[in-house]
Amino acid sequence: MQKDDLTFEDNLKELEEIVEKLENGDVPLDDAIEEFSKAMELVKACDDKLKDANETIAKIVDENGEIIDFNIE
């Protein structure tokens, strides 16, 4: 499994948890501000990841096991 993607998934999960915690409301103000900044960082991290999105790279593994570009005709 790819580390980067675990991070994306983990970030998203953590973000959800923080938002739920904040929405629950039962957080001391100082902690809430800290959690909120953390949430903003996570949103940015997730957004940055999505910005990386380009065209899907398609490859094909040839008879020798080499990976070469693959174009759909």
Partner: peptide
């Protein structure tokens, strides 16, 4: 689904703002 994930992140973003705003109000 990219769009849904993006929308979900946006939603989490605005939910964060709403939640902190609410916490401020309550305090």
């Amino acid at each position: 689904p990219f769009k849904e994930i993006k929308a979900a992140i946006n939603q989490l973003n605005s939910r964060s703002y709403r939640a902190i705003d609410n916490i401020f109000k309550v305090n």
